[in-house]
């Protein structure tokens, strides 16, 4: 027997050298994002339903012109306050406009005001959070005191003041919601950074001579991504709610643009005679917010390293 060679080739054959202890408790197996999402799908049907609801909403918003024959501004005064019927599934409003149509167009604004500020505040909050946690010292104090101040002011009040000063309009809504939300993101990302900063692999990168900016970008940021995804999904519903409230108060999106908050505001006076005016957009807000919340919770369960059940 050619023993030397023989045994060498055997050693090569050893399959994936996995960590031995991990083999015992397969729970600890390191999982890819895809695997984690798969686990969420299996264990949390509510999150899957929520994802489906959100998908339907997005499709509805995108294909609104195709889905409905009516125009969302087109008045039809002969048909004012019509009850739900085959022609107008959710009835019409005080101007005779089809409510389903306005709902679909309104979802464009609601989803945009959910996603865009959540994204902007995520970028701003993450950048400031990582900087704050990594730099420490005065930079940290400055950013965190600023965040504390933002968090100390009731967010609705803050939003109202900003909107009142800047005036209505979609752009200003985005700006306002970003300013309201970044501080929460920054705080959480900062604490995450503080933890990551003390890991051995960040120390190892420092020994190697990797620059600070590179450490933040390559070692800290990628490891914050799961937390960021969760924060993003959980920030969307709060943005949607704030926008609806602002529009309801007349400070947000201006008519004739359709927004769910605006629709509720308009329907307020007909609450007893034509309740669908308020209920339909109200239920839409509720369903959307719940769907994002459930999805966020589901994602947090599988992605958040601090909540890993082991």
């Amino acid at each position: 027997m050619f023993q030397g060679k023989h045994s060498d080739s055997r050693i090569q054959k050893i399959p994936d050298a996995e960590q031995d202890i991990r083999l015992l408790s397969q729970l600890g197996e390191e999982q890819t994002l895809g695997k984690k999402l798969g686990r969420m799908a299996k264990e949390n049907p509510l999150a899957v339903i929520s994802a489906a609801v959100i998908l339907v909403l997005i499709l509805g918003a995108v294909f609104a012109p195709v889905l409905t024959p009516y125009s969302y501004t087109g008045m039809d005064l002969r048909n004012r306050l019509a009850a739900p019927s085959a022609a107008h599934l959710f009835g019409t409003d005080e101007g005779g406009r089809d409510i389903l149509t306005r709902l679909l167009y309104g979802s464009r604004i609601s989803l945009l005001t959910g996603v865009v500020p959540a994204l902007l505040s995520l970028v701003l909050g993450t950048a400031l959070g990582i900087l704050s946690g990594f730099a420490g010292g005065k930079t940290d104090s400055l950013i965190m005191r600023l965040a504390d101040i933002m968090l100390a002011i009731p967010s609705m009040l803050l939003a109202m003041v900003i909107m009142y000063t800047l005036g209505g309009g979609l752009g200003n809504v985005f700006l306002t919601l970003t300013l309201v939300n970044w501080a929460g993101v920054a705080r959480i990302i900062r604490s995450e950074t503080l933890k990551l900063k003390n890991t051995e692999y960040v120390e190892a990168a420092r020994v190697i001579g990797v620059s600070k900016s590179r450490i933040m970008l390559r070692h800290i940021l990628p490891n914050c991504v799961p937390t960021m995804i969760v924060l993003f999904t959980l920030n969307i519903p709060s943005s949607i709610l704030t926008e609806s409230s602002l529009s309801f108060l007349g400070l947000g999106v201006q008519a004739p643009d359709a927004s769910w908050g605006l629709m509720i505001n308009a329907g307020r006076q007909y609450l007893y005679t034509a309740p669908w005016l308020c209920f339909v957009p109200g239920i839409a807000i509720m369903v959307t917010v719940l769907a994002f919340n459930f999805l966020g919770d589901g994602l947090r369960d599988v992605l958040d390293p601090h909540q890993n059940r082991e």
């Binding site: 050693i11 050893i14 399959p15 994936d16 996995e18 031995d20 083999l23 015992l24």
Partner: peptide, 10 residues
């Protein structure tokens, strides 16, 4: 001892 402990799954 050359090599590594084999994975229990393999």
């Amino acid at each position: 001892i050359p090599g590594v402990v084999p994975s229990l799954a393999h």
